[in-house]
Design a binder for these strands. Structure first.
Lengths: 203, 203
DNA sequence: GTCTATAGCAGGATAGAC
DNA sequence: GTCTATCCTGCTATAGAC
C-alpha cells in the first residue's frame, strides 16, 4: 500500500505547482511566465518541475482539467428541476461567480490565446464546453415547453449566446468595482430568453 | 512642399507595416510574432522596421489608434437622431460588423493580453472606450426619456453591458459559421433595454 | 525524486556601411 | 532611409550528480 501513499503525495505536489502556476499565468500571461519563476514560486527546482510535467503547456493544461467534472456536477444537480428557467439563471450565477476574481479574468484571457497553440488543451476545453452547451440547451428546451421561455428561440443558439455573455462578464470584470455583476447578468439572460422580468426581480 | 510628400510616403510605409503586422498578431499572437517575421511579411528589413517604430509594442499600438476618430465619427453621425433606440441598435450593428472576420477576433484576444504590459496602449484603448461609453449612455438616456427604453436601468451601467455583449459576439465569432451574429446581438440588446421586441423584428 | 549547472536556441534591438 | 550582420539577453528543457 506504500504505492497509494506515493501517489497521493505525487498528486499533492502536482496540485501545489498547478495552483502556484495558475496565479502567475493569470497575472503575467503564459508567454511571460517563465518555468523558472513557477519552480521558484512553488519552492522547487526547474529539474523537479519537469519531472512532474512534460513541458510548460502541460502545466497550463492541468489548470483546466478540473472544470470537466465540475461542469458535469453542476448540470447534474439540476437534472430533474421543476423550474428550468430558475435553474438556468442559477447556473448562470454559479458560472459567473468567479468573474470578479483577478485570477479568473486573467486565466480566461490566457486560455483564449494559448488554446490555439496546444491541441490537447483545445480538446480539454471543448469537452467542457460541450457539457455546458448540452446542459443549457436541454434546460432551455424544457423551459420553452413549460412556457417560461420564448419558444421561437433556437435552443442551441441561445445556449451559445448565454455562454458568450458569461465570458464577456469575465472579460470586462473590474475587480475594483463595488457592484456584483451577477444580478445584471441574470437580468440580461432572463430578458433575452423572453421572460418579461422587471428590474425588481433580480435575485 | 517636398516635406509634405515625404511625410505622406512615411505614413504610407508605416500603414503598410501596421496592416501586415495586424494580421500576424491576430493569427499567431503578440508574443509568438517575431519582429523579423513582420519585417519579412512587409518586405523590409528589421533595421527599417525599427526606423519606423521605436519597439515592438509601438507597432501593436498603432493598430488601435485609428479607432478613436472612427468611434467619434460613428456617434457624431447619430447626434441628433429622432429615434435613439434605433440609433443604439444601428451602432451596435456597426461595432459588431467585423466580428466574423478572423482578424478581429484574434486582435481582441491579443489586446486583452497585451494591454496590461503597455501603459501607452492602455491609454489609447481607454480613450476609445470612453467615447463609446459616453455615446451609448447619452443615447440610452435619450431613449429612456422618450419612453422606448426601460427607465429603471442605470444608463451608464447599461452602456457598459452593451459594450460587453458586443465583445461577446467577437469572442464567440466562428468564421466558418453561416449565420450572421448581428441580428441575434441586436435582439439581445433590444430585449435587455426593455423593449419588448419579438423575434420577427430583427433588422 | 530532487538538485545544480548548462546546453542550445531564438528573439529584440542596434551598429554602421551604403 | 534602407540594408546586413550580429550582439546580448533570457528562455525551455536536459544531463547527470546525489
Amino acid at each position: 500500500m506504500a504505492r497509494t501513499v506515493d501517489e497521493a503525495r505525487h498528486r499533492e505536489r502536482r496540485a501545489l505547482v498547478v495552483e502556484t502556476a495558475a496565479e502567475l499565468f493569470a497575472k503575467r500571461g503564459f508567454a511571460k511566465t517563465t518555468t523558472a519563476s513557477i519552480a521558484r514560486a512553488a519552492g522547487i527546482s526547474t529539474g523537479s518541475l519537469f519531472y512532474y510535467f512534460t513541458d510548460k503547456h502541460a502545466i497550463f493544461r492541468a489548470i483546466f482539467e478540473q472544470d470537466i467534472p465540475d461542469s458535469e456536477a453542476l448540470f447534474a444537480g439540476h437534472a430533474d428541476t421543476t423550474d428550468p428557467l430558475a435553474s438556468i439563471l442559477d447556473i448562470v450565477g454559479t458560472l459567473a461567480e468567479p468573474a470578479r476574481e483577478d485570477l479568473a479574468h486573467g486565466l480566461l484571457v490566457e486560455l483564449l490565446r494559448v488554446i490555439d497553440d496546444d491541441p490537447k488543451l483545445a480538446r480539454v476545453v471543448m469537452a467542457n464546453e460541450a457539457i455546458v452547451h448540452t446542459g443549457f440547451t436541454q434546460l432551455i428546451e424544457k423551459a420553452a415547453a413549460a412556457g417560461s421561455v420564448d419558444p421561437e428561440l433556437d435552443a442551441g443558439e441561445a445556449a451559445t449566446w448565454i455562454r458568450s455573455i458569461i465570458d464577456a462578464a469575465y472579460l470586462n470584470a473590474d475587480p475594483d468595482a463595488k457592484t456584483d455583476p451577477v444580478p445584471m447578468l441574470k437580468l440580461i439572460v432572463a430578458r433575452f430568453l423572453g421572460n418579461d422580468t422587471s428590474l425588481g426581480d433580480r435575485t
